[in-house]
C-alpha cells in the first residue's frame, strides 16, 4: 500500500528507480466496475514516472471498442479517455491477438492505436514485469 500512497517518497528513497508496471485488463467495460477502476489507477500511476504498460485480453478488448454510446444506460462513456493516455506518456498498449480474433474484432475497431501481440508474446512481457496489476 505504501507504494501507492507514498509514491513520491518512495521515488526519492530509491533514487528514482523506474519499475515496470503492467496493468492487465480482462473485463468488459460496463458490466463491472473493473475497467473504469483500472483506468483511474493507470492515470494516477502516470504521476510517478514509472514504466507503465497496459494489456487488454479476453473481454478486456471490448473496453477499446469504437462507437460506445452510453447515454441510454446513464453511465459515463470512458472509452475516449484511452486516447488521452498518450498525453500522459503512456504509449505501451498491447492487445492479445487471440482475444481480438475470437470476438470478431480487428485493430480498426479500436479507439486507439495498439500493438497486437500473440498470447505467447504477452506471456513473455508479463514475466518481465516488476509488478502486475490485474483487473
Amino acid at each position: 500500500m505504501s507504494e501507492v500512497t507514498g509514491g513520491v517518497e518512495m521515488e526519492e528513497e530509491t533514487g528514482g528507480t523506474v519499475k515496470k508496471f503492467m496493468f492487465v485488463n480482462r473485463k468488459a467495460p460496463y458490466g463491472t466496475i473493473y475497467a473504469l477502476e483500472a483506468l483511474e489507477v493507470v492515470l494516477i500511476s502516470a504521476a510517478f514516472d514509472q514504466d507503465v504498460s497496459l494489456v487488454f485480453l479476453d473481454d478486456g478488448v471490448y473496453q477499446l471498442k469504437k462507437g460506445q454510446h452510453t447515454k441510454a444506460v446513464d453511465m459515463k462513456n470512458f472509452s475516449p479517455t484511452y486516447r488521452a493516455l498518450e498525453g500522459y506518456d503512456i504509449d505501451k498498449l498491447y492487445v492479445e491477438k487471440e482475444s481480438l480474433e475470437q470476438r470478431g474484432l480487428t485493430p480498426d475497431d479500436l479507439v486507439v492505436d495498439v500493438q497486437v501481440l500473440s498470447a505467447d508474446e504477452i506471456s513473455k512481457l508479463m514475466a518481465e514485469q516488476d509488478v502486475v496489476l490485474s483487473f
Partner: peptide, 15 residues
C-alpha cells in the same frame, strides 16, 4: 469534451 477527464497538471501544462 474530447477525453472525458480533467487532465493532470503536468499534462495540462504540456498540452
Amino acid at each position: 469534451e474530447e477525453y472525458q477527464i480533467a487532465p493532470a497538471v503536468r499534462v495540462l501544462t504540456k498540452a
